[in-house]
Design a protein around this nucleic acid. Sequence first.
DNA 1: AAATTTAATGAAAGCAATTTTCATTAAAAA
DNA 2: TTTTTAATGAAAATTGCTTTCATTAAATTT
Lengths: 157, 157
Amino acid sequence: MQRWDGYGSPWWHGRFRGCGYRITVPRRIILDVLSKTSEHLSAEDVYVAVHKIYPNVGLTTVYRTLELLVQMGLVFRFDFGDRKARYELAMGPKGMRHHHHLVCTDCGRVVDYTDFLDEEKELLSRTEVGLAEKYNFTISNHLIQFYGLCDKCRVKK
Amino acid sequence: MQRWDGYGSPWWHGRFRGCGYRITVPRRIILDVLSKTSEHLSAEDVYVAVHKIYPNVGLTTVYRTLELLVQMGLVFRFDFGDRKARYELAMGPKGMRHHHHLVCTDCGRVVDYTDFLDEEKELLSRTEVGLAEKYNFTISNHLIQFYGLCDKCRVKK
DNA sequence: AAATTTAATGAAAGCAATTTTCATTAAAAA
DNA sequence: TTTTTAATGAAAATTGCTTTCATTAAATTT
């Protein structure tokens, strides 16, 4: 599951070194947890998972590390409407993971989709270029989410 | 600035009546504040603005009313990454206001854009149909945000 | 227009997610 | 191995928001 850079270190060690950040046990474990799930974990979720592996890690460190990873662009932070942040590895051993979300506004279920990405991609990059020019922004990322009712919740109503 | 329904009431009175909700002074003022700004107000912002007009309105009522308006579909709630909700009138006197956002990840500035909407719209609705079929969702809304650095923040780095 | 009903309100207390503080620990540099 | 200083964990603090409950005021009935 872990990918190596060919010099005996996981892929993200270089990024850390480059920024002057230390490679610590808690950081190693948090990244490991994130790289092994395909779910949308909250800070609490990460804490629980990390805690199972190494019970000494505190919740504070989880929050701090997630924040750091978001700053570095290694992790994305999402908001699905319940008021707690969700975290996902931006890219991982499996390669690029970019996807969009389909959120059920009733039960909160989140589906990742990549299916229409090819069609979307072209328009998105054109839009990005246009927006960047018009508003003088350097665009580095985007977020697309669709909201609605999943099959189960539709029936309930 | 206020639009009337031709029978002597602002446009939203009918919606309220239909749902059995009362038309009260705080609600009137909150809707008035929202209809007169083009900014992305937090609950606190709304509270401050409302307070200037009518100091008796409490923060609790502001939260409750905003929630009600979101439920009714009269107001949209957004999240721009600082962890507080922002509110915008869904449609107003000026007609439909649907737009997307361009968010500066450094200073938090938010630009609304509608420019590329025509091109986007068609792809979006195709995507919606496809997703709805594939994942068995009834899609009612979507969110598109681009993230990057605005001109000022790019220079600072 | 007055009385009645009940939804809406405001103040205070409560809550959950996240952040800050600060003394201690452990990476990494010397 | 020693030194430096970034990172950590526990506890306290903060923030954005929600709940509770006694009071007020819309809207309905008289």
